[in-house]
Amino acid sequence: MAFSKEDIKHIAGLARLRLTAQEEEDYTKEVASILNFVDQLQAVKTDNISPLYQVTEIENVLRPDGQPYPSDRVKTSALVDLAPDKDKNYVRVKAILSRK
């Protein structure tokens, strides 16, 4: 599958990456070469093989009812304190809707 400069612009937008023209150029070449390398997987027959999502295949790890916060090892306030802009226990962001 060909990977073009249009692809890189689209993907960079989705991934919230700002790229310079030179970076667009370089990444298009590099990613195309990596995709070319990984394309060898298409040769592997995988009919009737189910995907492996979790390698130890542990399922349904549940906490007991009634203990929404099983641990006091991580404090919410300590996490919010890391935000560059905050108000009490909230993280503040710039408005994304304007009045007019």
């Binding site: 890189i8 990444y27 997987l41 592997v44």
Partner: peptide, 27 residues
């Protein structure tokens, strides 16, 4: 950034089956 671009691409609509789902089967 290279890995973000690559990962976003192989997970994106139209490519997911060919890359990500395929790789999980090979895994």
């Amino acid at each position: 950034r290279r890995r973000i671009i690559l990962g976003t691409y192989v997970l994106s609509s139209g490519y997911f089956e060919a890359y990500y789902a395929k790789a999980q089967k090979v895994r």
